[in-house]
Design a protein around this nucleic acid. Structure first.
Lengths: 195, 195
DNA sequence: CATTATAGCTAATGCTTATTAGCCTGTCAA
DNA sequence: TTGACAGGCTAATAAGCATTAGCTATAATG
């Protein structure tokens, strides 16, 4: 890992934990193992680090949720749908990097337009788009009732997004959040899946 | 309005807009119309202002959503339910004070346990509890299908909470957010209300 | 009327912060 | 071998920050 990358990594951790204004350039440098002024050999300044961080978060997010090939196989029945969805949720909830990106975005969402748009993409448009396709697939396969896939995606994802956000701020409730999501998922299937 | 109150008011606005760390005591004093050191005649320090702010936010929230007498009449039919609920949503979304409290909480949710718990209460437990009661009432009246009211409250409120959060960070999308909530509400009624 | 508390002020303190200047060392190309 | 550059360092700068000390005027209280 290059120093440039180490800086991004340290900054992400610290920004996520203490916020942008709550993090000093010196703290970042400490984690990297260099002195603060050396950091300016790699980035123009603190704001520049934040921007680079958002760039890389966007790239990572698009790799993860943007491309078609990560939707995977359309589940063939209720059990498979629940299993694969819960797996996705648990992974997203626990992955340290993704978690830090969420925490960074949510704290700095009012700072500038880029972050604000990224937050909407992550919390709403991105996941909804992805699940709309999966739900559409299941409708076409005849295992989900005919309806607007986009609308069902909203119903499906919104409670999960809120619970993931909760587990970010109250990690001790992670288990409870997952259970809550699973109950919701069961209910979703009860409501919209054919028997 | 006493100076003590003016200080809380100014601090709420500034914290909501720029975050706690992004706001200086001097800025708060400027808005109030006094010099920074005078502020210490009213509060022990910056952290003390934040705590007082959360106290008052909690009081206001409990007045608003905590007590039974604010649930109001149980709607008698679909149209009334949609109308009164959209009214509630629009009010909550637009009320400046409530909006600032949401913005403050969401930005500082990782700072301390009180704020973290308040955020969960506002975003999840509070609204869900309130709507669970309303839904329960409509079930008892026979206009909503029999189901777990708490679970239906999750399905009902989660998309709305996310859209309200979106309109906080992208106020230019307020109209769009409200439309999105209304579509969701219609869909909720289609799904769970008897014809 | 005397005094005491309230609530403002200016000045100062001491700390943190982001950033710059300038130096040094090792690596690699000409 | 020389020279340039990358990437580290120390020292310094300048600004901003929360907070304290101490003064003053006004209003309330005895």
């Amino acid at each position: 890992m290059t120093t440039r990358e180490k800086i991004l990594d340290a900054a992400l951790t610290l920004f996520a934990e203490n916020g942008y204004d709550g993090t000093s350039v010196e703290q970042i440098a400490n984690v990297v193992g260099i002195k603060a002024p050396s950091l300016y050999k790699h980035y123009k300044g603190k704001e520049d680090i934040l921007n680079a961080l958002i760039d890389s978060a966007e790239v990572r997010y698009d790799e993860m949720f943007g491309s078609e090939n990560h939707i995977g196989r359309i589940p063939e029945n209720r059990e498979e749908f629940i299993k694969v969805t819960m797996g996705r949720v648990a992974f997203t909830m626990r992955d340290p990097m993704i978690r830090k990106i969420r925490m960074l975005l949510v704290q700095e969402q009012f700072r500038n337009e880029r972050i604000s748009e990224a937050t909407t993409k992550h919390q709403l448009d991105g996941i909804q788009g992805m699940f709309a396709k999966i739900i559409k697939g299941m409708m076409d396969a005849g295992i989900v009732v005919k309806d607007d896939p986009k609308l069902l995606a909203v119903e499906l994802t919104a409670p999960a997004v809120l619970q993931i956000a909760r587990s970010d701020r109250q990690p001790q409730c992670e288990e409870e959040c997952l259970e809550c999501i699973e109950r919701h998922l069961q209910h979703f299937c009860d409501t919209y899946m054919k028997k």
